[in-house]
Simulated scan of single mutants.
Amino acid sequence: MLKRDNLPLGIVLGMFTPVFAFFLYYLLMFMPKHVSLDEFITLIVGNRQMLPKLISICLLLNGLVFYFYTRSRKDITAKGIFLVTMLYAITIIFLKLLHG
């Protein structure tokens, strides 16, 4: 399935790769400090300035997936990943504008 070259696959990958990166970030950075996932989410919700930074970190994995799809000449899938990445970027900008 991941070898196909289509836009819906790129959109799905673009949406869920940052979610996977979010949990990976939690597992690597906060779980060793014995912070539960619930406490981590409460920390993010309570500290609104942390949210755009965390989304930006999670988008790094999207860049890696985009790179692999462009290298394998799956350009239509890469377009879907890029489209969703830009939507995440717009969200980050709005969050930064709202919360200073």
Rank of each mutant, 00 (worst) to 15 (best):
M1S: 08
M1N: 10
L2E: 10
L2V: 10
L2K: 12
K3G: 11
K3A: 11
N6C: 14
P8E: 11
P8G: 10
P8Q: 13
G10A: 11
G10Q: 12
G10K: 07
I11Y: 06
I11H: 07
I11E: 09
V12D: 06
V12Y: 10
V12W: 11
L13W: 02
L13P: 06
M15H: 02
T17W: 00
P18Y: 09
V19R: 00
V19D: 00
V19L: 05
V19T: 06
F20T: 09
F20R: 03
F20N: 04
F20I: 14
F20C: 12
A21H: 09
A21P: 12
A21D: 04
F23A: 07
F23V: 13
L27V: 07
L27P: 03
L27H: 06
M29I: 07
M29R: 08
M29G: 12
M31T: 04
M31G: 02
M31R: 11
P32K: 13
P32V: 04
P32T: 06
K33I: 01
K33S: 03
H34W: 07
H34G: 04
H34P: 02
V35N: 02
S36E: 01
L37K: 08
D38Y: 08
D38P: 04
D38T: 10
D38G: 10
E39W: 07
E39H: 08
F40W: 08
F40T: 01
F40K: 02
I41C: 05
I41E: 04
T42W: 07
V45G: 05
V45R: 13
G46Q: 05
N47M: 09
Q49R: 14
Q49V: 13
Q49Y: 14
Q49M: 11
L51S: 14
K53A: 05
K53S: 11
I55F: 01
S56W: 11
S56A: 12
S56Q: 15
I57F: 04
C58E: 03
C58T: 06
L59T: 01
L59N: 05
L59G: 03
L59E: 02
L60D: 10
L60C: 14
N62E: 04
G63Q: 04
L64W: 09
V65L: 03
F66L: 15
F66H: 08
F66A: 04
F66K: 02
Y67R: 04
F68P: 00
S72I: 03
R73S: 13
R73H: 14
R73F: 09
R73N: 13
K74C: 06
D75S: 15
I76C: 06
I76E: 08
I76A: 04
T77R: 02
T77D: 01
T77E: 02
T77F: 01
T77V: 09
T77L: 05
T77I: 02
A78I: 09
A78E: 08
G80P: 04
I81D: 00
F82Y: 06
F82H: 06
F82R: 07
V84I: 10
T85D: 07
T85K: 02
T85Q: 12
M86Y: 01
M86F: 05
L87E: 03
Y88F: 05
I90C: 06
T91D: 05
T91E: 08
I92M: 12
I92E: 15
I92H: 13
F94P: 03
F94V: 13
L95S: 07
K96Q: 15
L97P: 12
L97W: 14
L97M: 14
L97S: 15
L97N: 15
L97V: 13
L98Q: 15
H99I: 01
H99D: 03
